[in-house]
């Protein structure tokens, strides 16, 4: 093998080896600048409730939303739940199928790849944790903190995206439902 060819091969092998290494974010264990803001979005306080009422109301909301409860640890106020839901977007699928068709027409059906639609969104796995704890200073006051994340899968089984949910509107919708659920629980409905 000529020397230059050998070098090119070595370079390719090296590139292949290093491509898989994602870099570790140095600030992963430091509070981010938005940590306080996120806490405000994720925390609500409920007054004049008992521990049983707030926990029952919380798990009832999770059930209303179709979540399966994976973990409950009353001593630490932890409730974790998950669900798999549809994530497909018909506009995205239609767009990618149109691209596949265009590709086939342009190549006169010779060697066209008609599978780019498989890279579109399919289902998503959502996980959330609710931590329900009594306020340290006032009786009958409970603080609920919610954190959510999800993995969106593509139709070909690869990860389309994974993220921590930080959209305030999503949290607000959940807490609106929880407030209603707390009311129903207190009224014994």
């Amino acid at each position: 093998m000529p020397r230059s060819q050998g070098c090119a091969y070595s370079a390719a092998v090296f590139a292949l080896m290093s491509a898989g290494c994602a870099t570790f974010p140095e600030d992963a264990f430091r509070l981010s600048e938005s940590a306080l803001e996120m806490r405000e979005i994720q925390v609500r306080t409920y007054e004049d409730v008992t521990e049983v009422q707030i926990l029952a109301a919380s798990s009832a909301v999770l059930q209303d939303l179709g979540y399966a409860i994976d973990e409950v640890e009353k001593e630490l106020g932890v409730l974790s739940a998950s669900k798999r839901a549809d994530a497909s977007n018909s506009a995205e699928v239609a767009g990618k199928i149109a691209l596949d068709v265009a590709d086939c027409v342009l190549t006169l059906f010779l060697g066209c790849e008609n599978d780019s639609y498989k890279s579109s969104k399919d289902v998503q796995d959502i996980e959330m944790t609710l931590v329900v704890l009594p306020d340290l200073k006032q009786d009958g006051v409970y603080r609920v903190r919610l954190t959510m994340q999800r993995i969106v899968w593509a139709k070909n089984g690869t990860v389309y995206e994974q993220e921590t949910i930080s959209d305030a509107a999503v949290y607000q919708t959940f807490f609106d439902r929880l407030s209603k659920s707390v009311f129903l629980e207190k009224e014994g409905v």
Binding site: S32, A35, D70, S80, T129, V131, T147
Partner: peptide
Amino acid sequence: QDLGFVID
């Protein structure tokens, strides 16, 4: 939770 984790 502050660091953005979900408890498993």
